[in-house]
C-alpha cells in the first residue's frame, strides 16, 4: 500500500513545487517590467564595448565586470577535482583492455586533430563570437576523455599524464591570479582590464579587449585540465572489485 502511495504523493508535491517555481519566475519578470529608467541590460549592451573592448557582452560580463566571480568558478572546478581525488584516491588504470573497435580507433586517429582545432577556435574567439574559456575548455576535456575511451586508459595516461594535467591546472590558476595582480601593479583594482591601461585594440578583431583573451585562454586551460582529470579520477578504478 505505502509503496503505491509514496510515488503519487511525491508527484503531487513536485507538481505543487513546480507551480511555485513558475509563480516565482512570473513574479520576478512582472516586478521588473513596466518601470521607467535605464535597465541593467541596456547599460551592459551600450557601454560594454567602450568599457571592455569585447564585442561579446556575455564574455565582457564574465571576464571583466564579474572577473572575480569567474576566478571563483574556476576555484569551484578545482575544489571538485580535489574532493574527487580525496574520496577516490590515486587512479589505477586497469590492464584489461577496454577499447573501442578497430574501425572507431582508425577513424578517431584522423578526426582527433579537428577536435583540437575547434576548442582552440572557441577559446581564441571568445570575445568576438559565441564561446569562451569555459565552453572551449569543456571541448578540450572531451578530447582527452575521447582518447581515454577509445584507446584505453593506459594509452591515455601515456599521452596525457595526470601529472601534466595537474600542472596545467595549477599553472592556469596562478596565471589567473597573476593577471589580476597585474591590474593592481598598474594602479587599478584586482583583475582590472582597460582601467589598468591594457590596450583595447579594435573591438571585433582577434586581438582586442585588453586581458580578456588572456583570461579566456587561462580559464580554458584550467577547465580542460580540471574536467579531464575528474574523468581520470572517476574512471581509474577496477570496476570488478566490488563486482561479482
Amino acid at each position: 500500500m505505502i509503496r503505491r502511495v509514496v510515488p503519487v504523493a511525491a508527484g503531487v508535491f513536485c507538481l505543487l513545487l513546480a507551480a511555485g517555481f513558475f509563480l516565482v519566475l512570473r513574479g520576478a519578470v512582472e516586478t521588473g517590467s513596466g518601470r521607467d529608467g535605464p535597465l541593467l541590460r541596456d547599460l551592459f549592451t551600450t557601454s560594454s564595448v567602450d568599457e571592455t573592448g569585447s564585442v561579446n557582452v556575455v564574455t565582457a560580463i564574465l571576464m571583466d565586470y564579474r572577473a572575480f566571480d569567474t576566478l571563483g568558478e574556476a576555484t569551484v572546478i578545482f575544489t571538485a577535482v580535489a574532493v574527487a581525488a580525496a574520496i577516490l584516491g590515486k587512479p589505477r588504470p586497469t590492464e584489461s583492455q577496454r577499447t573501442m573497435g578497430l574501425l572507431s580507433r582508425r577513424l578517431l586517429s584522423s578526426v582527433l586533430p579537428l577536435f583540437l582545432l575547434f576548442p582552440l577556435f572557441v577559446i581564441a574567439h571568445g570575445h568576438i563570437s559565441p564561446g569562451g574559456g569555459f565552453q572551449g575548455g569543456v571541448s578540450l576535456a572531451v578530447l582527452v576523455i575521447l582518447i581515454h575511451v577509445a584507446f584505453g586508459d593506459p594509452f591515455g595516461q601515456n599521452v596525457v599524464p595526470l601529472r601534466l594535467l595537474v600542472m596545467v591546472e595549477y599553472g592556469a590558476a596562478l596565471g589567473l591570479v597573476a593577471v589580476g595582480m597585474l591590474g593592481i601593479v598598474q594602479g587599478a583594482s584586482f583583475l582590472a582590464n582597460l582601467a589598468a591601461g591594457f590596450p583595447s585594440g579594435t573591438p571585433g578583431s582577434l586581438l582586442s579587449g585588453g586581458v580578456i583573451p588572456v583570461l579566456n585562454l587561462l580559464v580554458g586551460l584550467k577547465v580542460a585540465a580540471g574536467l579531464s582529470s575528474l574523468y581520470i579520477y572517476l574512471s581509474g578504478h577496477e570496476a570488478s572489485r566490488g563486482d561479482r
Partner: peptide, 19 residues
Amino acid sequence: LTAIVIGAGILAIALALTV
C-alpha cells in the same frame, strides 16, 4: 554559465561518492 559550472562540480562529487 555559473550555474552550469557549479552543477558540474556537484555532479562530479556526487558521482565520486557513488563510486
